[in-house]
Structures are given as structure tokens and as C-alpha cells.
């Protein structure tokens, strides 16, 4: 049996002398691999991340510039008037005076004789997505024609209302009308607000329609202090 020759110093020296010209390239390749793994790959990752940050930052700057333009070109007086108008169309709390005023105005405009009315307060703890409501049951003298006229003119009054029920019998129209109110959302001046809520074309059209159709009572001047 052939025994494997023992690895001694001479053998190692021979292996070294035979391959010594390859030692330097092997070490260089090893160093290159270390550089690639430890330096180049992380740098590439960082570069990709920086690129995405730069791109998002550019988008943010564009948006901020647009927002600044929008806000600068918006007239503060127009905003005040719009808030004043909308806060009467959809009040922030139970506006009983506004409701009574709307009903009497609707009766005057439609030429109907207003009878009894009663408020239905309901559950005060509930708050719907579109705010709370005040329900009022009222009666007017007349039939279908008078009911039609009254409903039509009530639609043009502030606060905004909807009809829940109509009963006509014995020359008396009983209408259950629902008036809406909604508290203002909690927006603080200290918050770092950067999103500018611009009205869409449809919303602008709605605002314009409301401004054209709804006539506010002359005494209304509930200014909002910001």
C-alpha cells in the first residue's frame, strides 16, 4: 500500500515557489470582492435611495409651489364671505332662529298660511357623517299645490333642509322637515398644514348654485373668528 507522503516544509516550499506568481492576483481579487461587498453594493443602495428621496422631494417642492400659488391667488375676503355663507347654509350648531326664519320666509314666498309647528329634538348624543339634524313638524293650509310651492321655497332657504314626510288631508298639509347642522372639523392653526383643499369644478359649481339660489336673511352676520 502506498502511504501518502507527509507534508513537510520542503513540500510547502516547492508549492510556494511554483505558485508564488499567483498569490498577488488572488489577494487582489479577494480585496476587490471585499470592496464590492462592503463598499460598492451599499453605495449603490444608498444611491438608489437618494434618487428616490430626491424625486419625492422634487414632487413635494412642486406641490408646495402650486399650493403657495393657489393660496396667494385666493382672495381672503372671498374666503370669508364663502365661509360666512356656508356656515349659514350648513350651521355648525342647532340654529333654531335660522330654522324658524327659513320656515316663515318659505311660507311668505310661497304665499301659504303657516299653521302649528313643533320641534323634534331627538338623540343629542348621535352625530352622523354629515352632521346632526333638527326635525320639525309643521302644517300649512292648502293642498298639493301649496305643499309644492312651500317645499320649493323652503329649498331656497338657509339652513339646508330636506323633507322626511308629507301628509295632505282636509285642506291641511303636514310636513316633517329635517334641518342639518354640522360642527366645524377640528383644524388647528398650530398644525403644520401643507395640503391645500381646493374645490373641484363640481364643488365650485355647487357653491355657485347655492349662492345664486339661497337668499340669506339680512340680519345674518355670524362671523367666524380664526
Amino acid at each position: 500500500m502506498n502511504k501518502p507522503s507527509p507534508v513537510n516544509q520542503t513540500t510547502l516550499r516547492i508549492i510556494y515557489y511554483r505558485n508564488k506568481q499567483f498569490i498577488a492576483p488572488v489577494i487582489i481579487f479577494a480585496v476587490c470582492i471585499v470592496i464590492i461587498v462592503e463598499a460598492i453594493f451599499p453605495q449603490i443602495q444608498e444611491w438608489v435611495s437618494v434618487r428616490s428621496q430626491v424625486s419625492s422631494s422634487i414632487q413635494k417642492i412642486d406641490q408646495l409651489n402650486k399650493n403657495i400659488d393657489i393660496v396667494s391667488n385666493t382672495n381672503d375676503d372671498i374666503l370669508n364671505n364663502e365661509i360666512l355663507f356656508l356656515s349659514q347654509v350648513l350651521p355648525q350648531n342647532k340654529d333654531y332662529i335660522g330654522v324658524l326664519n327659513a320656515i316663515s320666509q318659505a311660507a311668505i314666498i310661497s304665499g301659504t298660511a303657516l299653521g302649528d309647528y313643533s320641534f323634534d329634538v331627538g338623540d343629542l348624543s348621535k352625530t352622523g357623517a354629515n352632521g346632526n339634524t333638527i326635525q320639525i313638524r309643521l302644517s300649512i293650509t292648502g293642498g298639493v299645490t301649496e305643499a309644492k310651492k312651500f317645499i320649493s321655497s323652503l329649498k331656497k332657504q338657509a339652513p339646508i333642509s330636506d323633507i322626511a314626510d308629507i301628509q295632505i288631508s282636509n285642506n291641511t298639509v303636514t310636513i316633517v322637515s329635517v334641518f342639518y347642522f354640522k360642527p366645524f372639523p377640528n383644524v388647528s392653526l398650530n398644525d403644520n398644514i401643507t395640503t391645500v383643499n381646493v374645490l373641484s369644478d363640481q364643488e365650485k359649481k355647487l357653491l355657485q348654485t347655492l349662492q345664486e339660489s339661497i337668499v340669506l336673511p339680512p340680519s345674518s352676520n355670524s362671523l367666524i373668528n380664526l
Partner: peptide, 12 residues
């Protein structure tokens, strides 16, 4: 102005 615009949007 931004707060006012937010309130207007919310109402509308």
C-alpha cells in the same frame, strides 16, 4: 387661508 379653504371644502 388654508384653514378657511379646508373649512369651505368640508362644508361643500
Amino acid at each position: 387661508k388654508i384653514v378657511k379653504m379646508t373649512l369651505i371644502k368640508d362644508r361643500i
